[in-house]
Design a protein around this nucleic acid. Sequence first.
DNA 1: TCAAAAGTGTTTTTTTTACACCCATGT
DNA 2: ACATGGGTGTAAAAAAAACACTTTTGA
Lengths: 257, 257
Amino acid sequence: MPEFKSVNEFRLNGGKYFVPSVSIDCVIFGFHDNQLKVLLLKVVNYHGWGLPAGFIYKEEDIDAAAQRILQERTGLHDIFLQQFYIFGNANRCDNNITKIAFDNLQIKAKPNNWLLQRFLTVGYYALVDFKTVNASHDIFSEEFEWHDIDCLPTMAMDHGQIVQQALLTLRTHLRYEPVGYNLLPEKFTMPELQKLYETILGKKLDRRNFQRKMLSYDILKRLKQRREGVAHKAPYLYSFDLKKYSTALKDGFQSAW
Amino acid sequence: MPEFKSVNEFRLNGGKYFVPSVSIDCVIFGFHDNQLKVLLLKVVNYHGWGLPAGFIYKEEDIDAAAQRILQERTGLHDIFLQQFYIFGNANRCDNNITKIAFDNLQIKAKPNNWLLQRFLTVGYYALVDFKTVNASHDIFSEEFEWHDIDCLPTMAMDHGQIVQQALLTLRTHLRYEPVGYNLLPEKFTMPELQKLYETILGKKLDRRNFQRKMLSYDILKRLKQRREGVAHKAPYLYSFDLKKYSTALKDGFQSAW
DNA sequence: TCAAAAGTGTTTTTTTTACACCCATGT
DNA sequence: ACATGGGTGTAAAAAAAACACTTTTGA
């Protein structure tokens, strides 16, 4: 895999290594302080926020490319990652990041520069444990930051729309398959799990019914331990029964909320 | 839009008009004789069956490209069409149709020929009224044919897998949104609608419960007419209340089977 | 001692499932 | 007249929704 010394070298000469005209955009969800968050980055020589993105090597499976891009950005391996949509409007790249960066830097790139073409982008969403992410700068980005899902900054191109679509997809998946293993630390309480569901769905749920339904899925283990040092009554800790969780993920379950 | 005189001219020179490395594959579902069917084509200079496919013009939205491709193939406008997955394994084009055709015809194309590259393909599924389709030959295909969903011929590349994925998607959508308007003629009977559901789901449903649930969605109008000239008791004809149908399609509905 | 969060169980309502009888039609 | 498919309703079971009291703990 080639190494690039600078973002501009990449922008000028990266084209020969990648599948042309297709990018990957990652919506990385994390959960912290009872809030669903998205990892955004500030792009160099550009004024706004964007999604962590990348390209597909010519001999690389797209799922592998998405995993690689995620790993480069978060340091995590084996992330839960799912393709959810391909965005392919003709005009989505009219104000693309590279074009604006070139303008800002007064670089005159050839019009056939690979990054100045119209791109389709494959949207992937990732679920990660907020605390174990070690978001790292790379040559493309100045700054990484978690943003609350319902308080996003203005974003580049159609990235705002991509986040919304990812959230909709996640919300749908929540109904038919287990979610949580990838977003929560190993041990968590039932109220914490509920808060996760509530922020994804964007609505309050009944505490008792939630617990009953969650337990009926038979993917949780209640531990002997309770969460200590908290105000009020100490809640039990749970963890996922990974085997049953995987089965449920594969087979799905029927439900409504 | 350019016109090509022959498939080989297209294969050799078509590249400059299209987004490189991305194709569109269409899984066209129809319903006839109580069977769910898929429209397949036999490709010229190739030994097997494939999905109707096409490419995206450089200035064209992908959804528009899919609509155009469908229209070229079926003669139908405003088809129900939905993107469902992007297939991007690196090796999916190892035995691609063009390569084999070139070999068969002993054409020596340049290795950088646009069609000999690795392609990603965007899968769309379409629901069409079997009877109004007028599948037309074009320069790429020798023969169009409807195939029963559970009796498909050996297919090119990963097209078999693409059909299965489309079917799975349709099966899922069936649970959460109305299906039928696009697959059935304007007037149809409840047993016909049920047969459609049964073939998509691949299982028998209870007649009485099916009717109750279907009516509860409040998207059907029962007509005064009955189907005439059939053996046994004449069933009522129904048609969809298009306004309510559209609303339901947008909002979805919750359900299980 | 009290406010705030957590644990638990019961009742009501809704949805789903299972199931049976009568009706119309062509053979 | 009868076999076949179509129309309809009801009772039982399961799932979801609504709801209240008790326990624990730190402030």
